[in-house]
Amino acid sequence: MIAYIAKRLLAAIPVLFGLTVIVFAIMALIPGDPAQAILGNFATPENVEKLNRDLGLDKPLVQQYFIWLGNLFQGDLGRSYMQNRPVLDIVLERFNATLILAGTALVLCSVLGLIAGVISAVRQYGWADKAITFVVLIGISIPSFWLGLLLILVFAVNLRWFPASGMYSIFGGGDLPDLLHHLFLPALTLAVVATGVIARLTRTAMLEVLRQDFIRTARAKGVTERSVIYKHAFKAALVTVIPVIGIQAGFVLGGAVYIETVFQWPGIGSMLVTAISTRDLLLVQGGVLVVAAAYVLFNLAADVVQTILDPRLR
């Protein structure tokens, strides 16, 4: 098992390299002079030339990549020209907030999605199933950024139950209850779509599993129906749902861009939007790279959990 996990970790390394290639390639595709694009329209020609030299842009593309990769290993992602600070510092500062938001949303959508999916399957064609199916359909069709606005209107502006934006109160905040208070609405909004996807899949997986021979065996043994559903069927269904939760991590991390903007959450997502608008390309590059790496790790975690559950994979 430990050997397997080590193997999975090793297998993640080429994927991470692939990410760096894509990120690098996208930036290399910038039309026109990249240094000009990075420095903006008001850069002096001397600065543009200096950056071209610094970035090694006069060298062949492959060489450029390895220089860039070498810098990356030393923690050098370049400087943000808007903030005039190292990209890595800014990104790491922001990453924490994104991780808290996306992590909470991921836990929420897994728990809610699994529960809703199981109820839906067990009460197939009953009113609970119909209600869940309909709510799920709404959940995967609703624009999360709009839902966030609605929740702010209802729960922050009208009811005043939750703050409308930010991560901590400006005055006297900073502790965990304060964080949770701020976290609730954005995390919930971010979880909605993924909850719908997971609930749908769990329902199908449960219905599929409940027709399997080993379920009939469990019934033939005289196991209670409760145990048949919540122990035998659920565990088997979980094995098919876990990888999808890993994939949903990508949608949650990506969706954080909208939610962080709507709730002014100080994470990488909102940073990226600003950076794109101001054409702060090195900051965009660093942010994208870090979030994509986080996604790879989330998927890795899902893989490991699945291996723990399913002995056939070991």
Partner: peptide, 13 residues
């Protein structure tokens, strides 16, 4: 391997 929306953002960037 990229989060879907993030890749779109990078392209727009």
């Amino acid at each position: 391997a990229f989060p879907y929306i993030l890749l779109a953002l990078a392209i727009v960037a």
